[in-house]
Design a protein around this nucleic acid. Structure first.
Lengths: 343, 343
DNA sequence: GATGAAGATGTTAGCGCTACCAAAAGCCCC
DNA sequence: GGGGCTTTTGGTAGCGCTAACATCTTCATC
């Protein structure tokens, strides 16, 4: 055998570092993982050796030996959706410069796909799992319960967390948005929604609760489609909603993409927003406050959800088990020009 | 020792499968990785055993033993940017159901951060690397050249690929957009740009080439900022550009976010688009064709770039080294209402 | 100064898998 | 029926690291 192993391509190993520093391999391992547990003297020697060899630990060998990978598995239903883009950014920032890797999986809004990905992820014994929503299949739920690592369900809150939950009430968000428009004097408040996933369904339920409480409910007010959401779909759905109910005077859009599409459609059809039609979105994407007119929406704390999901998981991992299992980050109704009230 | 190992948490290993199927471990390994190399008989037995035990191979052990992880490292400058969201989606789809994992890194437009992440990624001996742009630091370039795996530089093209390149010419894109507006009769064509990364610089260079060729260049036409791009920044930059050069009659926006902001600003300031001001964006985000007026832009094939980057890398990995090292996917000028011409 | 607790460092034995080589089995041809 | 070929299967020895335990040192306490 050559001085370097047959396969590693000449990269230095922990044994090389140990030899150079004149210590044992396990001391190098310890000095790198738990610097506080070795003497200053030893640590300095080892750091110098690491530096001079350009040693980088092999995460695979580490994971194999310790039966625990420094990987955080994340399952989101969509990578396209702006909403999840913010969550993902928060997750990356939450990790910061800790040496965890993010293992992202796209479930495409499918429970079965989620279950399959979970199986794959668990194969690596991740340090933590972050999953979206609370409507896992029974199989997925069982996998999560037996995962043996912190699990954070994000974006929603409910009574029955697998482990931890971090999000807000979509029902209340939908209700608050709708109630606001009713309070402003709109009386035919419609709903448009695309890709009616469970969270969208709950927003719709919140809408309906508000409209019914005001005695304004009419099934013709609701227009939905299973198609994925987009701005252009917002245009189409608004046309459809108006055709179905020409007296519509306000619309709660299931998300901001649809709201923006609705706004463009109004411009195109010369419908005065907010006099002829009030528009309210959901999520508060950055563009909403500069649109013309600016669009009322429910601000959700997506970045914060991502960031804190990681923090919570890592905290639990390190044993500081503080804080509640279910954390409601709430939402804010951002009132803007698009719901100033009917004529 | 118990029947199961001390640390694996009771999960079945390849040895368990081998015992159940009455074959050797190496045969199980082969049956799973290269089904064609074992007999049908053997494969069937092994598949049955895998199924009945619910065996999932340990990717870490596999990576350690084979000195090659089934990981594709991807470095993008931003996770927020819609542009990269599409690329990332393409990458995930390009992988499809092959058992590769995506290891994403966010360089935050920093060469040093890119170099650091590269170091970390190489620690895993990835199967392939996908990096953005062609302006790596010398250190990063050296790392890429010694990576020992396929490397794809995406989003841009140039003469000097590390290995493979896949993208389009930002210079030509900028020039085509600008030339189009000049051809339409606009004579004071400005430029607004945010976060002037190398690709933005090249679009600006393309803009400038077109404007200079037409004898229309004036330094007051160009407004840029190092701030990250956003829709609201588009509003501000347009205000600034108009203040600096009130006779401006068209604007090439470095990307679609800025273009949308510029459009909103025009609505707010009652500037007629396209009569008083022509607007052209870059990228063709989904909303551009439904905006009011619809916005002319340069369509770039971002999803396709992501998808094919993976395909190219995996093809090279499997030895079918076909196709050129540098592939230009081009762009399309999508002419819409916002550049119909001055009054 | 004996005692033992706490801290620092080392030795050993794998983690679960695959590269490498060897051996056995089947096949073709004369 | 034997030599050379390919195809199929298995044994062995690690990959680079860390858990568990062992050993050695230090130092407070009586």
């Amino acid at each position: 055998m050559r001085s370097r192993s047959r396969r590693s391509g000449g990269r230095p190993t922990i044994a090389d570092v140990a030899k150079l520093a004149g210590v044992s391999a396990i001391s190098v391992s310890r000095a790198l993982r738990e610097p506080g547990r070795v003497s200053d003297e030893l640590r300095r020697q080892i750091e110098a050796a690491v530096e001079s060899l350009g040693y980088v630990p092999d995460p695979n060998a580490r994971a194999l030996a310790s039966a625990r990978a420094d990987v955080i598995g994340v399952l989101v239903p969509s990578l396209t959706n702006n909403v999840f883009a913010d969550v993902v950014r928060g997750i990356y920032d939450g990790v910061g410069d800790r040496s965890f890797q993010i293992q992202m999986g796209n479930t495409h809004y499918s429970g079965l796909e989620e279950e399959r990905l979970l199986q794959v992820f668990l194969g690596q014994r991740p340090a933590a799992l972050i999953v979206s929503g609370l409507d896992q299949t029974p199989g997925a739920r069982k996998l999560l319960e037996g995962a043996g690592c912190p699990v954070v369900q994000i974006m929603e809150i409910g009574d029955d967390p697998v482990d931890m939950m971090l999000g807000f009430s979509h029902f209340e968000g939908g209700r608050a948005a709708t109630q606001h428009m009713i309070d402003r004097g709109y009386s035919k408040v419609g709903f448009i929604g695309a890709r009616m996933d469970p969270r969208s369904q709950r927003r719709l339920a919140g809408y309906r609760a508000a409209v019914e409480a005001a005695g304004l409910y009419d099934p013709r007010l609701v227009t939905t489609t299973p198609l994925p959401s987009s701005v252009s779909l917002g245009c189409e759905l608004l046309r459809e909603a108006m055709a179905r109910m020409p007296t519509l005077d306000a619309i709660f859009c299931n998300n901001d993409d649809l709201a923006l599409g609705a706004l463009f459609e109004c411009h195109r059809a010369a419908i005065d927003v907010p006099r002829q039609l009030g528009i309210c979105g959901f999520n508060d994407l950055e563009m909403m406050h500069v649109a013309f007119p600016s669009i009322t929406t429910i601000r959700t704390h997506r970045y914060e959800i991502g960031r804190r999901a990681v923090t919570m998981a890592l905290e639990k991992l390190s044993g500081n088990n503080i804080g509640p299992a279910v954390l409601d980050l709430g939402f804010e109704l951002k009132i803007r020009e698009s719901t100033a009230g009917p004529r």
